[in-house]
Amino acid sequence: MLIRRYFRIRSLQFLYAQHLSKINFKKVEKNMLQNIEELHELYIFLLYLILKIRDKAIKNINEISTKKKINSIQKIAYNSIIKMLSNNKYLLKYKYLKYYEKKLWIKQDESILFLLIKEMQKSQIFKNSIQKFNSSFEEEKNFIIKYYKNSIIPNKKLIDYIEDRYIINGSENLYIAHMIVCKTLQSIKLSTPKNFKLYNIYKNNENKKFIIDLYRNTIYHKDEFNKLIEYISKNWTINRIATLDLIILQMAICEFLYFPNIPPKATINEYIEITKIFCMEKSKIFINGILDKVFKLLYKQNKIFKIEKKLI
């Protein structure tokens, strides 16, 4: 659900950009796919950040004199979940790929790592956890997830650092990358194989095919969709509908007609949620009403064949 909504939003943004710029749609599509590749790069970068924080913590143990401080650093240095990540061949392979040489952490980044460890030690999450040093696997996992959500994600210096190193189009990529990291950490169990597969954003090209088909079919068939929208809206000509509202309607109708595995209700719900993010308050009611009528008409005309039980 998270990734598909992200892909819908990305498609909407690039369809809107193409509409305004009138640039060849294939060039815009190329930029869109590059943007999604950036999401994967950020995901790998953030996983390596966790490993680098652990490496820094292990190094610091030898430099700390008091037992209390050593015990505190061990919460990161010997965390079972991070240890599993550090031995994962699917993650480790990236440091040997030439393209990722400048994408991952370098020696000059250590000041950021030191800052993140210091802020962890000051956090209430850490103070609560240190009272119980001998933790279970689940407690170690909960600790690292809480630490990540409360100390890493909102850290302003880290955000600035990442924005300096990556071309981030808005905050969506970074937000989604953080959420995927959290899902990865949450999925790790004591029984998880050593070399578990990382989160696949393209999901064996299924998601990549989804966004390309959605983008292209919305452009290819927009005149057809516009006639349908104009017929349903009656008192509203296409020129009177706000551009973003219109593109959202076109995309939803595209899913009705060209994505038989996505239930119509799921399509409508997803685009209403997207409308809440990008459009005026009144747009939600307008778009919901149009989509409901369009679906009923197409269903009556036997133009929609849906597999209702299949999840989005």
Rank of each mutant, 00 (worst) to 15 (best):
F210W: 04
Y78D: 14
N128S: 12
K30F: 12
K118N: 15
R240V: 01
N88S: 13
G170S: 09
K310L: 03
F14K: 10
I253W: 03
K306R: 15
K118S: 14
I117E: 12
K149Q: 12
M251R: 00
Q186H: 15
S21V: 11
T267C: 02
N200S: 15
L246V: 04
T218R: 02
D223L: 02
E281P: 09
K293Y: 05
A17T: 09
Y166H: 08
I229P: 01
T267K: 07
K282P: 00
K208W: 00
L42S: 00
E119D: 15
K234I: 08
N31A: 09
S72E: 12
N128Q: 12
I81R: 07
N288G: 11
H19A: 02
N173G: 08
I125R: 08
C279G: 04
Y220A: 04
L91A: 13
I274P: 05
I307P: 05
Y94H: 14
L49A: 08
N200L: 14
V294A: 09
K310W: 08
I82S: 03
N217R: 03
K282W: 00
F278Q: 00
G289A: 15
N71H: 14
E270N: 11
E29H: 10
S21Y: 01
F25P: 07
I167A: 13
A177D: 01
N134D: 01
E29I: 11
S187D: 08
F114P: 02
I82Y: 03
K132T: 13
I201W: 08
N204G: 04
A177V: 10
Y161C: 07
L33W: 05
L42I: 02
F126W: 09
I125K: 11
E255H: 03
Y147G: 10
I153W: 06
K194N: 08
S129M: 10
N204C: 04
N261D: 03
Y94E: 05
K149L: 02
Y231W: 07
F278Y: 15
N142H: 11
N88I: 12
L42R: 01
I144E: 03
L116I: 13
G289K: 09
L33F: 06
Y258A: 02
K222F: 00
C182R: 04
A266F: 10
S65L: 13
S72V: 11
L116S: 12
E255R: 01
D55N: 13
Q124E: 14
Y78S: 12
Y215L: 00
Y43L: 00
L49S: 07
I145N: 00
S86G: 12
T184D: 06
K156F: 13
E163G: 07
L291Q: 03
K222G: 03
K102D: 13
S135V: 03
I117F: 07
P260H: 06
K189V: 05
N173A: 11
A57S: 14
P193T: 15
